[in-house]
Design a protein around this nucleic acid. Sequence first.
DNA 1: CCCTGGCACTCTAAATTAGAGAGTGCCAGC
DNA 2: GCTGGCACTCTCTAATTTAGAGTGCCAGGG
Lengths: 352, 352
Amino acid sequence: MSKNPSNPVINERAQHLLRVLIERYIRDGEPVGSRTLARDAAMELSSATIRNVMADLEDMGFVKSPHTSAGRMPTVQGYRFFVDSLLTVQPLDGVDMQRLRAELNLDLTRQDLVERASNLLSGITRMAGVVMLPRRKQAALRRIDFLPLSDKRVLVIMVINEREVQNRIIYTDRKYTQSELELAANFLNEQFGGKDIAAVRDVIVADLQQTHEDMNRMMKAAVEMAGQVFQADDMQEREDVVVAGQTNLMGFRELCEVDTLHHLFEAFNQKREILHLLDQCVNAEGVQIFIGEESGYTALDECSVVTSPYSVDGKVVGVLGVIGPTRMAYDRVIPIVDTTARLLGAALNPRE
Amino acid sequence: MSKNPSNPVINERAQHLLRVLIERYIRDGEPVGSRTLARDAAMELSSATIRNVMADLEDMGFVKSPHTSAGRMPTVQGYRFFVDSLLTVQPLDGVDMQRLRAELNLDLTRQDLVERASNLLSGITRMAGVVMLPRRKQAALRRIDFLPLSDKRVLVIMVINEREVQNRIIYTDRKYTQSELELAANFLNEQFGGKDIAAVRDVIVADLQQTHEDMNRMMKAAVEMAGQVFQADDMQEREDVVVAGQTNLMGFRELCEVDTLHHLFEAFNQKREILHLLDQCVNAEGVQIFIGEESGYTALDECSVVTSPYSVDGKVVGVLGVIGPTRMAYDRVIPIVDTTARLLGAALNPRE
DNA sequence: CCCTGGCACTCTAAATTAGAGAGTGCCAGC
DNA sequence: GCTGGCACTCTCTAATTTAGAGTGCCAGGG
């Protein structure tokens, strides 16, 4: 805890003061002056002494003042140190815990679970919640069904893995009856049921390119239809990340400039940047925090992002998190994100 | 066009001036002074004359000035008159038309179509698009399927009408095999396939309450499961209205106050008010316009809403529209909304 | 009667000024 | 190394000023 040439020297007392300063700043959002800090810190120090320490902390880059005659507020580096070394996380509030448990139940589809998780994150933290859709570890075709529509159109319903249902409409060369389509579906289910989707696609593409004499007309039609289904590029996931509670962010003083909000909401809409950011956290263990510009996206410059990967069967399948102003109650948010990740993982677990 | 005791007197010249004023105001968003108007109107009138006319128009409530020494801007009543009597709608831009045609295709599911329509509305108008999900004229159960999951859970897939696929997870009293579930599904499909959903629910609720000796175990189980499915209250529609392009609204000067935006975005999130508003337009013929407070929702006080019902098979099934600042290019927006409604209706048409 | 130029008047927006308050930095003394 | 004291800086608010835009109204002319 003493002299360390690589890190700026920051002794116990300074650490404690930094901590009190940040806690205070997080509470009221206003620069903290030496007098206030002297009172808050309960260390029997005069404000003059505090001022000296603050000057040091400012030199080291942990705090800054918006102008000469204002108190100090944390820099990104200050928050970083606070979060890494000074923070004692609060245990999760009992009510919140119950709410999470109650709502992240097993009897929900994948989409529902993810949406709920996002709503819970935003609801409990009163900030914005983001949840990446779970990556499919392997995407097995569980079942495929065809239903005739009007004209030559066919509704295709596909069940992937346990919980995911996709559907789309394809065109056929002629009108098929329900029973014909059932035959086709049966054929495909027998051939490909339980197989990996990528593999299925490959086989079908190959089939389409060569003529099989050993296939009857119905089988060929089936392959033809499957071709249409599996070549669609939205075969992957369509909406990769679910955001909730964006409007909460409009309540924070520090984000209240229309321009900032515009960028931020644009980012939420595009989802691309958010997704990339979350993607980086897939390999992190447990909660990870990006403070201000650390995220690398200008839209998030005024924000912090608290993320956690969530796992099914011990394997990370997605990332979720909370986005709020840098001045957020990290000690409260961290366990919320952590717990939500655990519970979402558990709820998604097929337990087979 | 002359004296009419019920309406304020507003002669040709005043109408023309009002029109020019509003067009100008829509263009630049700044109060229009008498001198500018004199130049714009190309009527060989002096600014003093214009001032007299403006005073009259202000008395009649068509224009107002933000303060003594500013030009005039339209009131809600002014816009109303403009929209009802003075407006000549522009024909729809060819490029936009093509884009609408290209993207509102037949080979899309209900959800996809609605989302596209909303995106198109917002993309072309550069404001916010809203599309109500189409009411089902009648909700016929097209097909129901069961798929076993782990534990005692069963994935239920339901096809309603032509395009709508719903799925959820239910719990059963014991684990059923795939073939057992197929039997159950067959039973239900035979019993209820093509029937109206409300009717199906009634029958099933009744079945559940009395013991049928004539039903075998499998049939009972099937009814049991169906009971779980049809009693769920999200049986209706889950997300009633799709909003797109909200962020576009942040670019408009008149909506740039954070407070206004907060309310507005809150309304978009809740969707309730938006839905109610759209609901009122179901019985309107063609495009309907709400200007400012006319909508009756304070969140939309600064906005205008241009709506149009859309129909399938000659019957109105939903409403779509555009939300933007009162100062919008109505002449351009109206045909966009109108055409989108037509094309969406056409795309949804099962043509059977 | 309607239109017009002219002029006094009003109001806003932007720039300027003044004063209060908060907080700092630094120094001299303990 | 800590402290009280003091001069200084900077922001925030309110008050004041000024320029500009636009009006309302009047009196004169077709």
